[in-house]
Design a binder for these strands. Structure first.
Length: 374
DNA sequence: GTATGCTTTCGGC
DNA sequence: TTACGGCCGAAAGCATAC
């Protein structure tokens, strides 16, 4: 075999911690086991105002899902011995960090995605052997269970796309191996909407083209897809439907954006009332950036109106800065601009977002570490 | 015509 | 009967630069 550009099929694992927030709560309080557990984000409006963040599988059996209103979840669990708990992010962060450390030591290359998912490229350590990859996945599940008491679902595949979909195909506590040879069998029968990257909108447009399944999609003319969906997404659909994905497993650097959003005490268009919240959010988001020693090049105002539509207005700054005053000034201007441009609805939620992040003064980039001393 | 950067929206959990 | 969070990353859509 010539050189590092090996022709060996990659072996990639996707690890997904099951119903993560709710499972953390079960671990802290074992008496919750067997009962519906609903982890909620309560807004500042009091009562049951807010939405469900995560529910365990018992609660899901009653139709309770992430994103539904808390009041609706309570209705669906009326007369059932359910637990409604507020989110405890600090707990989940701590559990996540310890589990990610376990996963990392089993990977040639590691990529954490969000708080509860990770990709592991294990090609070298299993020598491209999917049976060994399955054994490794089993060992990882056993370690996470023994050390942290949590279950996870693992997918093994020849790339990230297939590994991710394999993990999703059997939950919770699943282990699904899809070898290169089995990729067509695995993907073809799935509804097109289950392909990673295909949401409700794309599924509908595919349906109008007569494409119902991933198999239909894989047989559709590539040029036709590009015509309908554009070069980038059209090509992605064509390749994904065939289980082709060559994106590498690689460590993610720093965050790309930091935002803070809150629900107002009542829906309003009063600039003073909204500005009070915006000032508070500006300080919060500034603190978030300072904590990671990040500067930013863009400030955005986020507004959710009483029709639950999301709006944003953003401003690119002259250069990177870490100045709170810049955030406060920009967000005030953006709020005024939004209120003059969107004149109908009242504002329900408001937020401030920083993007174009980079390391602050005196910080070397993460990628530069380790390159100087040898 | 393509690359790049900025603004806005979308979707997952 | 209605009900409705707080994040994140990715990508679409557009304007401008080369």
């Amino acid at each position: 075999m010539a050189g590092a550009g090996s022709r060996t099929t990659r072996a990639v694992l996707h690890v997904d911690l099951d119903y993560f927030f709710a499972q953390c709560e079960e671990r802290e309080n074992p008496s919750l086991k067997g009962r519906p557990v609903v982890v909620c984000v309560y807004s500042a409006r009091g009562g049951d105002s807010g939405a469900v963040s995560t529910a365990n599988y018992v609660a899901r059996g009653h139709g309770v899902r992430a994103g539904i209103p808390i009041a609706l979840a309570k209705r669906r669990l009326r007369g059932v011995d359910a637990a409604f708990l507020p989110v405890n992010r600090g707990l989940y962060e701590a559990v996540s960090q310890r589990i990610m450390a376990i996963l990392r030591r089993h990977a040639d290359r590691f990529e954490q995605v969000g708080i509860d998912e990770a990709y592991l490229d294990v090609t070298r350590r299993v020598d491209g052997d999917f049976e060994r990859a399955r054994e490794l996945a089993q060992r990882i599940k056993a370690e996470v269970s023994a050390e942290e008491g949590l279950t996870c679902s693992v997918g093994v595949g020849p790339n990230k796309l297939v590994a991710k979909m394999a993990a999703g195909s059997r939950k919770p506590d699943g282990l699904t191996v899809v070898t290169l040879e089995k990729v067509p069998d695995f993907l073809s029968p799935l509804p097109a909407g289950e392909l990673y990257g295909v949401g409700a909108k794309t599924e509908k447009r595919l349906g109008e083209l007569g494409i119902k399944t991933v198999d239909d999609l894989s047989k559709y003319d590539a040029a036709g897809l590009i015509e309908v969906f554009g070069k980038s997404f059209g090509l992605y659909l064509h390749r994904a439907s065939r289980g082709i994905d060559d994106t590498p497993v690689q460590e993610r650097g720093m965050a790309t954006q930091i935002s803070r959003i809150t629900t107002l005490g009542e829906d309003t268009r009063d600039p003073d009332a909204i500005m009070e919240a915006v000032r508070h959010l500006s300080r919060a988001v500034h603190a978030g950036a300072a904590e990671q020693n990040l500067r930013f090049r863009s400030v955005a105002l986020i507004a959710v109106t009483d029709d639950l539509k999301l709006h944003t207005r953003s401003k690119a700054l002259d250069g990177p800065t870490d100045d709170l005053e810049v955030i406060a000034e920009a967000s005030e201007g953006l709020l005024n601009r939004f209120l003059s441009e969107v004149t109908g609805p009242k504002v329900r939620r408001v937020g401030v977002r920083l993007s174009g992040l980079e390391k602050g003064k005196g910080q070397r980039k993460l990628t530069e570490f380790g390159k100087t001393s040898h």
